[in-house]
């Protein structure tokens, strides 16, 4: 039995868990191909015109899997913790996909609403296992292995690596530290982000993303806004930004967002205003299917150069 996993959206945040789980259940896991122009075009064709790129890409990746797997895994992510849910498009994802892709008849829709109680995650796993006629112990074992794998993934991030991009470590001695915030599926899809992170590392900077900041640290900034945001990934981005701003541990912040992203218009503006208050350079990069390499490179280079200059001035003043 082959199960297809679209390489899009929540994939980048949770793939070690999902992949390991299905493998250990004894299924053959087929991940859709890395994003390419074809996948992008397919997605643009299928999805509603004013959807954001990540959603379009998800459609494309589902198309990519059609015909070569028995099931296509489409998660309906509702919550993973008590305080927040996900962007409405995550909540309606299976409905959108079912209506937009006409010949999709083997969708494995899994509702993931595990925020309320700790054992919900396991129960969900058990349910999925049962669908494939796997016993309790097989499912339990798969669940444990999946957890381990996710833990390992998180750990790699905390060590300064970026596993989905194949970055194992970064040079600690880099002169410029850059906070790069954005949703995992924006940052870690090299096609969509035009390899932005590797480019920055190539320019000799040390990149810190939200996944590289421990959950505990982020929690400290939870009370920063009168109301907590409603979306898990947005919370993570915003709290990371607050951590950067309050501790001053980075020289500048780059926010990578999608054109027309609903939640981000709020997130981006709040970060911009806060950064301005504290005089920390802030750059927003909005991506869509038309964003070109050239323009992006120039903007990144200009930003990093500016940070370097600023740093020099500061160092000179300290001497």
């Amino acid at each position: 039995m082959k199960i297809g996993i679209p390489r899009a959206l929540a994939y980048y945040a949770y793939y070690p868990f999902v992949n390991t789980f299905f493998e250990k259940l004894g299924l053959e896991v087929v991940v859709s191909d890395p994003t390419s122009k074809e996948i992008m075009d397919a997605g643009v064709e299928d999805a509603v015109a004013d959807a954001c790129v990540p959603i379009k890409l998800f459609h494309g990746h589902v198309r990519n899997l059609l015909g070569r797997v028995d099931y296509v895994f489409v998660p309906r992510l509702v919550s993973v913790n008590r305080e927040a849910t996900f962007c409405p498009k995550f909540l309606g994802l299976p409905d959108m996909v079912a209506c937009s892709i006409t010949n999709l008849n083997n969708m494995l829709e899994v509702r993931i609403d595990i925020g309320k109680r700790k054992r919900e995650l396991f129960l969900t796993c058990l349910r999925v296992g049962r669908k494939f006629r796997k016993g309790f112990f097989t499912a339990y074992n798969a669940y444990l292995k999946a957890l381990m794998s996710l833990k390992n993934y998180t750990h790699q991030f905390l060590q300064g690596g970026i596993p989905p991009l194949g970055v194992l470590t970064q040079k600690k001695s880099a002169d410029i530290k850059l906070g790069v915030v954005g949703y995992p599926y924006m940052l870690y899809d090299p096609y969509l982000s035009l390899d932005l992170i590797k480019k920055l590392i190539g320019m000799g900077t040390y990149v810190i993303t939200p996944e590289m900041v421990p959950e505990k640290v982020k929690q400290k900034y939870a009370g920063k806004l009168k109301k907590t945001l409603f979306w898990t990934f947005s919370n993570s981005v915003l709290r990371t930004a607050f951590h950067f701003l309050e501790t001053g541990c980075v020289d500048g912040i780059i926010h990578v967002t999608a054109f027309g992203c609903g939640p981000d218009f709020i997130v981006d503006k709040i970060m911009e205003l806060e950064a301005r208050d504290r005089n920390i350079p802030y750059l927003t990069i909005a991506l869509d299917e038309h964003t070109g390499q050239e323009g992006l490179n120039t903007r990144l280079e200009a930003f990093v150069d500016m940070l370097r200059r600023k740093r020099k001035v500061k160092e000179a003043a300290m001497l």
């Binding site: 999805a47 509603v48 004013d50 959807a51 962007c87 409405p88 498009k89 909540l91 309606g92 409905d95 959108m96 209506c99 937009s100 027309g260 992203c261 609903g262 939640p263 218009f265």
Partner: peptide, 17 residues
């Protein structure tokens, strides 16, 4: 409204309905 998230979801469902 342009970029309204819930309505974008609805919009992809409505044609079929």
């Amino acid at each position: 409204p342009f970029t309204c998230i819930p309505e974008i979801v609805a919009k992809s469902i409505l044609p079929k309905v």
